[in-house]
Nucleic acid binder design. Sequence first.
DNA 1: TTGTAGGCGTTATCAC
DNA 2: GTGATAACGCCTACAA
Lengths: 346, 346
Amino acid sequence: MESPRKRATMTDVARAARVSLQTVSAVINGKPGISEPTRERVRSVIRQFDYHPNGFASSLRARRSFTVGVVIPTITNPYFPEFVRGLEDVAHRQGYSVFLCNSDHDQSKEINYLQLLRRHRVAGYVVAYGLSNSEGDRILAELAADGIPVVTLGTRQLHPRAVTLLADDVHGTKRITTHLVELGHRRIGFISPPEGGDVHRHRLAGYLGALEKAGIAAEPALIAPGDFSVKAGQRGAARLMKLGHPPSAIVAANDLVAIGAINALRRMRKRVPEDVSVTGYDDIPLARLFHPALTTMAQPVHEMGTAGMAALLARIKDPKLTGEAIRFKSKLLVRESTAPPLGPPG
Amino acid sequence: MESPRKRATMTDVARAARVSLQTVSAVINGKPGISEPTRERVRSVIRQFDYHPNGFASSLRARRSFTVGVVIPTITNPYFPEFVRGLEDVAHRQGYSVFLCNSDHDQSKEINYLQLLRRHRVAGYVVAYGLSNSEGDRILAELAADGIPVVTLGTRQLHPRAVTLLADDVHGTKRITTHLVELGHRRIGFISPPEGGDVHRHRLAGYLGALEKAGIAAEPALIAPGDFSVKAGQRGAARLMKLGHPPSAIVAANDLVAIGAINALRRMRKRVPEDVSVTGYDDIPLARLFHPALTTMAQPVHEMGTAGMAALLARIKDPKLTGEAIRFKSKLLVRESTAPPLGPPG
DNA sequence: TTGTAGGCGTTATCAC
DNA sequence: GTGATAACGCCTACAA
């Protein structure tokens, strides 16, 4: 068992290149004021020694880190890979690395992650759909007090100093529900996001708003509780179709739920969209490839990621920048999973 | 604009708690030898000061970090979220954080990431499907020389000191191709993984092996070049079906490719599986929800992640452990996308 | 451009 | 359990 070789330090490099320590530092950090021959000589020694700067030492001394923390519910929800890719692309382009944390919507896990990220002294935080509680607010306030930028993805502005990526859930849900109304549907079921959250409130408001605008009375039985999983779609659809007077269309909380619902409907020998129309939300990459292709509200998820990270890095670089809300528009994509109702409406 | 408050240091905590510095350190790191009342007093001051240990200082001094680097092609390929979740779950349980890097199969990007991770002094590396080139081998060798554990996910053991998560691609592809043969197919197309890689070699070997075993002559025209994308499936299927004598079944490189192929076939008014059978690979979460549900080889992706991270952390904790190959078995799942050919075979 | 000195916030190692 | 002291590897400031 050979023991690990000793790593070269900046001092070693400086000595071998016959320059001062700060010259090496300047070369590494691309600072001006070093002649080209010197630069090359230093670089050559760096290669020769296979020297890699120690990020800990540098971050400790310079009091800044080139890392950011990203906390999402779970990367296995197809919504988030796109978002994370957007974040990560921009971060990497500017030399930042990303800590990925899956909170599973679990509050204690989320807090635990935030503590961990604090130890790592990340330069900024991106938190997607989380922290809607007093403990979370406290942490956000502390970060703000420390002057550490925070970007959240969600439905409301959590903190005046945080950047919030705002999805237009109310409008979006209203829009897609209205699409069903326009097709002639009158009995429209709703498989809701997890209760208690803002998304639930907003989406529900959009759904109810569309019905009201159409002069359709809302019916509690047509609202099935759910979350963002395939299983919720299966259960929700089963529950709705068991009703004495089942809906002719279902508004699902997202594409995954819609897929689950369509799956359940198929097992009940219901055709989509002939017997029941189903809508999704998000436009995950596979939505258009499904059969039937999903009618859904597309969110510019990747762009939300790039814009979010850009805003975060801008604030890391210039702490004087203030919080803001960046609004993103979702867009109705009518595909195959919705159609006019077959029988006479009502 | 309030300026960021000054962070408390360990010294501050020690002073306020009227204990020595090392007592604070011991409390934080859960070391024995401190009385319970003292512990509580220290903890109370920590809370009061909202003190968070500085990971840089600690890592610099102790020469160890609680971070690992994960390099994958792209998290937007649905194969990887499951894998990454597996990795991350285990890492987090042991107090480690994960740097996520998307290399996009781009060699220079991959190398760039590895450099970055070296600066961060990550305690270990997980590299999925990458580094099959001399530069990569060099880096791996260097890491090994530094005594830094590496886990790779792929098809061959890259380095005797690395842990390799081995998928049984040859056998798996042979198995699923044989499934088609057993259904009665004789003309079986193949949409291949990217050429030049091991996966390509292995999968192709499996495909050809199954044909040979069945006494079917391989036909170059039935092998369409591709990669792991939906688009590759669309293109590959289009190309195969344009043949004078098109295949009655298609073996796709993975589920995404299969989905693309099915999509293209549908646009050509071919029914799956009646007119053409299509197989996938991986069993991504949505594979069973597709219509038709995909016949595919399931890989225990999440488990590959948990096992991989467990192996990595074990080696971080005990550098004397040697490299090994961990083999994972894939499993044939026959669902709806395959069926016997309609017409007379041949 | 150079060289030197000091310090970032920990951990480690002594002796006590 | 305390206290003092020396690193860890780098950045910054200053004088030259």
